[in-house]
């Protein structure tokens, strides 16, 4: 299996945020993780990407046990993530935001004599074109609109050339039109790079449009999983989301 989580547990005080979660992702799939607010989606993301360490369970990526490894190591292994709440480098320009990621991806972090701005220019610019921010390259990231900051967020993750891309609510806080645009961009990029995606999202329309497979999380537990049509017809999911029978 390409990516697998087995019996993962995490508690914060008395609260079991992740309760015996097991899931798996096939290579090349766009896999969605859905659930109401507070279901533990972001916690699961944090556990997978090394932001926090699990209390028990295993995370296995391409046959390797990556449980409890640091965020830096896990990113190196090929899992890059974007954040629900915009998390860029605000006082660097858009170009520089992508540049620091590309330099790190090329393992040049300890190179102290090459002029950084002359390295991999084409690659950085092509990343900027791909995420649709080429014209804003010289703007400070902190001055971009929210929607464009979310684009940059995805761009930074993609600059790491991941094999598994974990997108934590890439459309949160966006208007309907913006959502449509960024989804198109993300779909295009996924096709182009061929990476596997773990997507966490609130918007059911978004999920049903893009996913190959869906995992439903509630109160820290996986309560349902299946293809889009499975989930669409699942009683339990309707109850979770609509509070009752259809």
């Amino acid at each position: 299996m390409f990516f697998q989580v087995a019996n993962l547990e995490k508690s914060f005080g008395g609260l079991k945020a992740t309760d015996n979660v097991s899931l798996h992702i096939k290579q090349g799939d766009i896999c969605a993780l859905i659930g109401p607010n507070g279901a533990g989606k972001t916690t699961l993301f944090n556990l997978i990407t090394g932001a926090i360490k699990p209390d028990a369970g295993k995370v296995i990526f391409q046959g390797e046990d990556i449980t409890g490894k640091t965020a830096r190591e896990i990113t190196r292994k090929g899992i890059a993530r974007s954040f629900q709440i915009v998390n860029v480098f605000p006082m660097l320009t858009v170009y520089e935001n992508i540049m620091v990621a590309v330099l790190s991806q090329k393992r040049m972090g300890f190179n102290f004599f090459h002029p950084a701005k002359k390295i991999a220019r084409e690659e950085i610019i092509s990343h900027l074109v791909n995420i649709g921010l080429a014209t804003q390259a010289d703007m400070l990231a902190g001055q971009l609109s929210h929607g464009n900051q979310k684009r940059l967020e995805v761009g930074i993750a993609l600059a790491m050339k991941p094999t598994l891309l974990a997108l934590d609510e890439p459309t949160s806080g966006m208007s309907v039109e913006e959502k449509g645009e960024i989804l198109e961009t993300i779909k295009k990029l996924i096709k182009m790079t061929g990476c596997t995606v773990l997507l966490c999202e609130h918007d059911m329309n978004v999920i049903f449009e893009v996913s190959d497979y869906i995992w439903v999380l509630q109160n820290g537990r996986i309560v349902a999983n299946g293809t889009v049509s499975d989930i669409k017809s699942n009683e339990l999911v309707h109850r979770i989301y609509l509070g009752g029978k259809r």
Partner: peptide
């Protein structure tokens, strides 16, 4: 500079 701006995110680009 990336670390100065955002040390948490820096870890997620393998710095």
């Amino acid at each position: 500079r990336a670390i100065r701006e955002n040390p948490d995110r820096s870890a997620f680009i393998s710095i």
